[in-house]
């Protein structure tokens, strides 16, 4: 089975670096799967989980925004934060989720705080989702 090199990089360093069979991410327009020999592509990512398929095994990584660059035999994911399930602090994510929910109830819908809280909530939910698997 052909493979492609997948790199996940954050400002704090490299999180993932290995050969995989398939990469699937959530872009701002929806899910996108990349197989080897894909045409070069650049796309921004939404907050969500990246799934990296490696010999029948699926690795999950929680991503917070960023973007993906695809070349024929290489995928580079650049995210503000990227965490493997083992790196996720579940208690912290849960606390963040509750805090964000509280803030969203307090703040007005069109408020900046509301949007911030919404993003925080998305990140927290994403982390919890990835950690659960």
């Amino acid at each position: 089975m052909s493979t492609l090199q997948a790199n996940v990089v954050t400002p704090d360093g490299q999180v993932f670096d290995a050969q995989v069979n398939m990469v699937s991410v959530r872009t701002i327009d929806g899910e996108l799967g990349i197989l080897p020999n894909h045409i070069p592509l650049v796309t921004p990512l939404a907050i969500g989980a990246a799934r990296l398929k490696q010999d029948g095994e699926v690795k999950m990584i929680a991503l917070s925004g960023g973007f993906m660059e695809v070349r024929s035999d290489e995928v580079n994911i650049l995210a503000e934060s990227a965490e493997l399930p083992t790196d996720i602090d579940i208690t912290r994510a849960r606390a963040a989720k509750e805090r964000a929910e509280r803030r969203m109830q307090e703040a007005k819908q069109e408020n900046v705080d509301f949007r911030r809280a919404e993003l925080a909530l998305k990140r927290a939910l994403n982390r919890l989702e990835v950690a659960k698997r």
Partner: peptide, 19 residues
């Protein structure tokens, strides 16, 4: 390489430049 920009180059710049 000549990238495909998804959805388009403008949107990507919009997102990428602040980053």
């Amino acid at each position: 390489p000549d990238y495909i920009y998804e959805p388009d180059a403008e949107t990507i710049l919009e997102r990428l430049l602040p980053h």
